[in-house]
Nucleic acid binder design. Structure first.
Lengths: 214, 214
DNA sequence: ACCACATCGCAACTCGAAGTTGCGATAGCC
DNA sequence: GGCTATCGCAACTTCGAGTTGCGATGTGGT
């Protein structure tokens, strides 16, 4: 309940807030990367940030809101889209930078929250959709250039390319559970390239043909 | 509320010994499929099984052991390996049965536990490795037949084929978050077939070549 | 059928973490 | 240097994990 007379949302007197705000969010990301969402304790986060538990609860409604807010800052991290001159090189670079981001502390924290039981939080699910929507959109020029060069068939879907590229990497990280290194990235790039060249990654509207073609 | 007996409604005692054992495990799987690992309460499981909380703790050391035991029974579920006569048909059938299992209550429960914060439990991680090791092993004849038919290059790695096939399906389920249906299965089969034909899924020992080959 | 024993229900407990409240201390701004 | 919003602090409630002792009941052996 905000009162009308006192300016509740004025931006100037955020007080000594911003420093504490940033410290708590950084501590949240660190705790997330280390122990995951289930092990994340508000008391530990506060202690790590050099702040009292009550202060955290004054800024954030609950533990979920804290995690959502902490992730929102790092979710906007831009993975640069390469332009090496060939679609093979571009795919490999995209895969490598994705792997690099996933093994970084920030990436590990985001991944931990996006996969753990926090996914049931609608804000987390929404953030997840936003991430991939953004990547799909940013991958469009890469695919468009490859089509213009004649490397990929006309009608290749950028979303399908990004999905095919990211799938083996996330599969390794989340499901099969092996080490995540450049070998995985290059394998993902090869699979994606082979599929795209075969015309399998075309626009999803008309994917009705049989699997085995001539 | 609807028909005579709702699955959650268990006002009467369920019996002793093995009957109670089975009821608790079934209730655990059901709770897992509905609310995930974080929301799984021993008290709710006991209530659903028509059993007291203490009884559960007498058989299982803690909540983690309960989940591990409940999953162990359903983890051994065999996904039948097809033999349609062509690798394209086999891949499509494997993908479809994987999707079918993942959307079933049992599959949802296993998936929920295998991805949630329960992964930090060593027993869960071990069970996960066992599942995929089993699938890799069972997929060997399918790939061997395809190689014998001349459909796939010599040296194609069954593990890589299964990974490539399962990756887009799990990616859809866990990361990109879209609907999981036969369209996804067929797309996964097409990608895997294209990659395998291109010789990208060969034995992992010597994957050092450049991405774009002739 | 009857008794013995293992098994289960039950209530009451400890412990840790989420989230809340009131008050006193302090830092930032004018 | 004073005013006020912000923060620290302690004490509190609530909830679920996990434990304990005892009483009740079902099951097998004879």
């Amino acid at each position: 309940m905000e009162l009308g007379s006192t300016p509740a949302d004025r931006p100037r007197p955020v007080g000594r807030g911003p420093k504490m705000h940033a410290a708590v969010l950084a501590a949240t990301v660190a705790e997330l990367a280390e122990g995951g969402y289930a092990a994340l304790t508000v008391e530990r986060v506060a202690q790590r940030a050099g702040v009292h538990k009550t202060t955290v609860y004054r800024r954030w409604k609950d533990r979920a809101a804290l995690v959502v807010d902490a992730l929102a800052e790092h979710i906007a991290t831009d993975i640069p889209m390469p332009d090496t001159g060939s679609i093979g090189g571009d795919l490999r670079e995209m895969a490598r930078s994705l792997v690099g981001w996933l093994v970084s502390p920030t990436g590990r924290a985001v991944e931990a929250a996006l996969i753990s039981d926090a996914v049931r939080l609608p804000e987390i699910a929404e953030a997840r959709a936003r991430i991939f929507g953004d990547r799909f959109r940013r991958a469009e020029p890469v695919v468009a250039r490859a089509v213009a060069r004649g490397e990929l068939p006309v009608g290749t879907d950028p979303s399908a390319v990004v999905s095919a590229l990211a799938a083996p990497i996330h599969f390794r990280l989340l499901v099969s559970g092996g080490p995540l290194d450049d070998t995985v990235a290059e394998q993902a790039a090869r699979i994606t390239l082979a599929a795209a060249r075969a015309g399998v990654l075309d626009t999803p509207a008309r994917v009705a043909g049989p699997v085995d073609k001539g």
